[in-house]
Design a protein around this nucleic acid. Structure first.
Lengths: 149, 149
DNA sequence: AATAATTTAGAAATAATTACTATTAAATAT
DNA sequence: ATATTTAATAGTAATTATTTCTAAATTATT
């Protein structure tokens, strides 16, 4: 934990950000709950337990920065708020199974894309109705243009 | 077009909804722009061209209904509004390539999941940085419970 | 310690979406 | 065809997640 915080401090510092007590507290909560997807508001309430003076805007501001620095992942589900989770280096890149009924979110990791869809149903007893796959990156024009610039 | 509208009329009717002039106008715009992802607001402005009295709330209300009936797909990207597109039966189930730079959204269809990630870069000259895969369906507990019910 | 630059709390503003209300249109029964 | 019931609408107000703004506080630097 202390080491992890140091790592983040270094990372922040390299990008001209300081490890303020507020940032420290937010990171502490995220680390202690690295299995959890937080809404900004849930995180706010959790951080308030160790720092009653924290402001909601501070949570948002820093989640944005943490997201830039790849300290947290910003997740978009079909809800009307965003979810945030700590990026866990020890954990494989993972995806989500979202229950249309109870909204539970299960995770699975990606090794072999091919066998996924079929295996999922068995391994997780998850009945797939639909799936969305999104790739983020740079399109032809954009990476060509950025080479020029 | 007229046939398609008839099909939607039947579908609405089967679900105790009427094909009102407003719904007709919205569908008309969606059909004429089936390649397009609309925001509620863009759609609103487009429908206003053929029906100046249409209300924004009507757009939202009906997009919700159309989404239930699988007439449109509600899409969530990393933007702060939702995108809607007509479900095109003739079109294969498709996914999206989202440019982090210009936000252009390219489409690709899914045949063979395995070869995707590698092929994508070649076929679309798209430089993938990250991807998200989401499966929607029912988790173990939920489909078990619904069998009991 | 004095100065400059960040960061913060808290409030106000924004913007997408939803809920509400009175009115209109449509469907059904008479 | 007309009266009655029901569904759908326009327009507005309310809601809610998120952003922006501002003055005060903190931190780093000299």
């Amino acid at each position: 934990m202390a080491e992890l915080i140091k790592k983040y401090k270094r990372l922040l510092s390299q990008n001209n950000y300081k490890l303020t007590p507020q940032r420290n507290d937010i990171l502490k909560v995220l680390i202690e709950n690295k299995e959890t997807h937080f809404s900004a508001d849930r995180l706010y309430k959790e951080v308030q337990k160790i720092n009653p003076d924290i402001g909601l805007a501070t949570i948002y501001r820093n989640l944005e920065i943490f997201s830039e620095l790849n300290i947290v992942h910003k997740l978009e589900f079909e809800s009307d708020y965003k979810h945030y989770e700590l990026v866990d280096m020890d954990k494989e890149h993972h995806h989500h199974l979202i229950c249309l009924n109870c909204n539970k979110i299960l995770e699975f990791s990606d090794e072999d894309l091919e066998k996924f869809e079929k295996r999922l149903e068995k391994e997780y007893s998850f009945l797939t109705i639909d799936h969305h796959i999104k790739f983020y990156g740079y399109c032809n024009e954009c990476h060509i243009n950025s080479q020029e610039g």
